[in-house]
């Protein structure tokens, strides 16, 4: 059986909010190392991959592999009943028909309990190869969100060009063109404001802004975002979850080709 307790319901609320624009139904795969999720969006352009390590919970118990097939809009409805600071416990039997969610307020002696019906989801798992990316950029997550939203006013696609000079996000549309260039800089007082660029060779790729803007719904989960690029492979957009236990929310986006 599964029994996992999260100190802050907010984490799950935000993860579900961040992915529900891309994915309708998906399996939450639970085993002794934690809860994982992998799903393609409906148009098979993007892939979401989440890992919530057992260490993110206290306690965490899952002795068998259990797949919780969940409709995300139904889960969103249930999670609306959880206050952000509630303690959230997920429970399921070994071959479950439902997942049980309990929200506890430590201040108010209130316990809310919901059973969410599960569904059978026959989901294809994709193997994601280990990639040595040609460029990786770590930057403030809110800045990435801002850039994507601003450039979406100009065009439906953005080119991301990374050289030793910096990283340039550029868009060209009917009304004109726009670009934002970021150079590497460190902010000693506010490290979350730093921009770090790790480059082994120059990269230039184009992506659909609609998907990138969708990914940035995860902005409130982490102060930093990491973009990893290599020519001719999908972009990786990564948010760290719940600090320091290597839990993550990753989005992969296939590039656009031609012009």
């Amino acid at each position: 059986m599964l029994e996992s307790r999260l100190e802050q319901a907010d984490l799950l609320k935000k993860v579900v909010e961040a992915i529900s624009g891309l994915v309708n139904d998906c399996n939450f795969d639970c085993n002794d190392s934690g809860i994982a999720l992998q799903a393609m969006d409906n148009s098979h352009v993007a892939l979401v991959s989440m890992m919530l390590k057992a260490e993110a919970f206290s306690p965490y118990r899952c002795d068998r592999n259990i797949a919780l097939g969940i409709n995300l809009s139904s889960l969103t409805k249930v999670l609306r009943a959880a206050q952000s600071s509630d303690i959230l416990t997920l429970k399921a039997e070994d071959a479950p028909d439902v997942v049980n969610l309990v929200f506890e307020s430590s201040e108010k002696d209130r316990i809310s309990e919901y059973d969410l019906k599960l569904m059978d989801i026959d989901q294809e798992h994709l193997g994601i190869p280990e990639t040595e990316y040609a460029a990786s950029i770590s930057m403030p997550s809110n800045e990435f969100q801002r850039i994507c939203k601003d450039l979406m006013n100009i065009s439906e696609s953005v080119s991301i060009e990374c050289t030793k000079e910096g990283v340039k996000f550029a868009a060209a549309g009917d009304i004109g063109t726009g670009s934002v260039t970021l150079k590497q800089h460190s902010n000693v007082d506010k490290p979350e404001q730093s921009v770090e660029i790790d480059l082994s060779e120059p990269v230039a790729l184009s992506f659909s802004l609609k998907y990138l803007v969708n990914f940035t719904k995860a902005t409130s989960l982490a102060s930093k975002v990491k973009l990893s690029l290599s020519n001719e492979v999908p972009l990786l957009v990564e948010y760290e979850l719940s600090g320091g236990n290597s839990s993550y929310l990753r989005f992969y986006l296939a590039p656009k080709i031609g012009d």
Partner: peptide, 14 residues
């Protein structure tokens, strides 16, 4: 305009 690639053309089923 440019062509959108599919993610499954990069990542193969396990």
């Amino acid at each position: 305009s440019s062509n959108q690639r599919s993610i499954s053309s990069f990542f193969t089923p396990k």
